[in-house]
Structures are given as structure tokens and as C-alpha cells.
């Protein structure tokens, strides 16, 4: 009897939680479908997708997300691997560093970056410029320096998620023993990383990558202050001038996130099986 009562409460709380999350989403969807008076339709979606600015900013954000993910993986995977294998005593320090983006707001980060990288490096006490500012690095009218800066900023923002995902993945496979087994079979560092470590943490890499993607695509502060037209600022501006299109795009963004979560679940389920009994 007591158990049934407990179970009833669990269901009530579950229902309340579900409504809390579903209702705003339903309201957004409902609103986005009412662009035409007294009709339910997808006009807001058609208008939003037809805007060339949407395509341009969305494509730019996607490219930036892919670059951020690749560079993050190149930097973070060997770092996490090395810390786990050779420098376990440095783990706390590295973890502390990876958590810094949680306590340093993006606005502070971007101002810091602008201040450091938009001023030239001079020889102390002289006016002789040693290194030109990164933001002035322009190749064929392409602001390469600014793009490098924004990718670096995105990497910092995504660091806690990416590092944690990779580190958790390495915890589930016995990295040390697998490395030693590979070494005893004659493998070098690259072979071990490429053929043994990376395939065995692919689910973690994917979850880290998708979280990074979500952060980059929706990011507003860094892009706005660095003056880059990306999807985040576009959506923000759209929200200030239009009513229905931002709702439509928000709902699409939700669907994309859910699809990403689904992929994570699917892949981590598969990897759980292959990495289960080692």
C-alpha cells in the first residue's frame, strides 16, 4: 500500500516535470504556426528559411562549430589522455582550468580577448612593434584573425563539456592497460591514439562534439562583440523585430538538439556494448 502511494507520487512529480518542459515548447510551436490570421500553417517557417541572412549565418555558425569541434578534439583528447596516463597528479589542476568558463562570463572573456589580441606586441619601453594584432590578420578581405579568435573563444566556452566528455570516455575504457597492451604489440603513439583510444571513446567524443555544436550555434556574446554575423546574433536581432519567425527557428533549434541527443543515446548504447566487458 505504502509502495503504491509512493509510486503515485512519483508519477505526479513526473507529470508536473513533463508539463513544465512541454508547455512552453508547445506554446512556442503553437505561436509559430499562427502567423496567418485564423489559420494554422507553416508560413513562419517558410519566411524564416527563405531569408538569405538565415542561410548565411546558419552556414557560418555550422562551419565555425565544425572547426571548433575538430580543434577541440585535437587539443583535448591528447591532453586528457596524457593526464590520465602520465600526470594523474595534475588532474585536479586541469579539471579546475576546464571549469573556469563556468565562472568567467563570456562578456569578460571577449573583452579580455579583444584587449589582448587587438593591440600589437611591442618591445618593452619602445614603440617598436614585434607582432601585429591578431584582429588585423586579413586574407583577401577575410578577417582570418577574428575568426581564429572566435574559434578560440568557442573552444574555451565548450571546454568544460568537451573535457568532461572525453575524460569520462577514457575512464570507461582502461586507457593505461590498453596503451601498454598496444605498446607491447609494437604500436607507436599515433597508432595507439588513432586505432585504440579514439575508437573506444567515440560516443564520448560525439556527445562532447554535439554539446560544443549546441553552444557554438546559439552563442551570441562572442560573435556580437567580435562583429561576426553568426546564427546567435541573427536570432537575437530577429527576435527584436519579428514575432513568429524567431519562435519557428527556436522550435527548429529544439528539434535539432533532440536529434543530437538521440544520436548520443544511440551511439553510447552501441559503445556501451562493445566496451562493456574488457
Amino acid at each position: 500500500m505504502k509502495l503504491k502511494f509512493k509510486s503515485l507520487w512519483s508519477w505526479i512529480w513526473f507529470l508536473i516535470g513533463t508539463l513544465y518542459f512541454i508547455l512552453p515548447l508547445y506554446a512556442t510551436l503553437d505561436f509559430s504556426l499562427r502567423m496567418e490570421r485564423d489559420t494554422i500553417g507553416f508560413k513562419a517557417y517558410r519566411v524564416a528559411f527563405a531569408d538569405p541572412k538565415f542561410v548565411e549565418t546558419f552556414a557560418r555558425s555550422n562551419i565555425l562549430a565544425v572547426i571548433t569541434i575538430i580543434v577541440s578534439i585535437i587539443l583535448i583528447v591528447p591532453t586528457a589522455y596524457w593526464v590520465r596516463l602520465r600526470l594523474p597528479q595534475a588532474r585536479r589542476i586541469v579539471e579546475f582550468i576546464t571549469l573556469l568558463p563556468f565562472v568567467i562570463p563570456a562578456i569578460i572573456l571577449v573583452f579580455g580577448m579583444i584587449r589582448v589580441f587587438s593591440t600589437p606586441v611591442r618591445i618593452p619601453f619602445t614603440d617598436i612593434i614585434l607582432i601585429q594584432p591578431l584582429t588585423t590578420l586579413i586574407v583577401n578581405k577575410f578577417h582570418l584573425g577574428t575568426y581564429i579568435l572566435i574559434v578560440a573563444g568557442y573552444m574555451i566556452l565548450a571546454l568544460p563539456y568537451m573535457y568532461r566528455a572525453v575524460d569520462t570516455g577514457m575512464r570507461t575504457v582502461d586507457v593505461r592497460t590498453l596503451t601498454e597492451a598496444s605498446q607491447s604489440l609494437g604500436a607507436n603513439g599515433f597508432t595507439i591514439m588513432w586505432h585504440v583510444i579514439l575508437p573506444n571513446i567515440r560516443a564520448s567524443l560525439l556527445s562532447g562534439a554535439l554539446l560544443t555544436y549546441a553552444i557554438v550555434v546559439g552563442e551570441v556574446v562572442l560573435a556580437s562583440f567580435l562583429g561576426l554575423d553568426t546564427f546567435g546574433p541573427y536570432l537575437f536581432l530577429l527576435g527584436q523585430h519579428r514575432a513568429y519567425e524567431p519562435s519557428a527557428l527556436t522550435f527548429v533549434a529544439f528539434l535539432l538538439t533532440w536529434a543530437a541527443m538521440g544520436i548520443i543515446q544511440l551511439v553510447s548504447g552501441e559503445q556501451g556494448q562493445t566496451a562493456g566487458a574488457h
Partner: peptide
């Protein structure tokens, strides 16, 4: 001891 087979 832990076999150390490559799970993938």
C-alpha cells in the same frame, strides 16, 4: 590480468 583486449 584484465585481458586488455581492444573493445572496438
Amino acid at each position: 590480468q584484465s585481458y586488455a583486449l581492444f573493445p572496438n
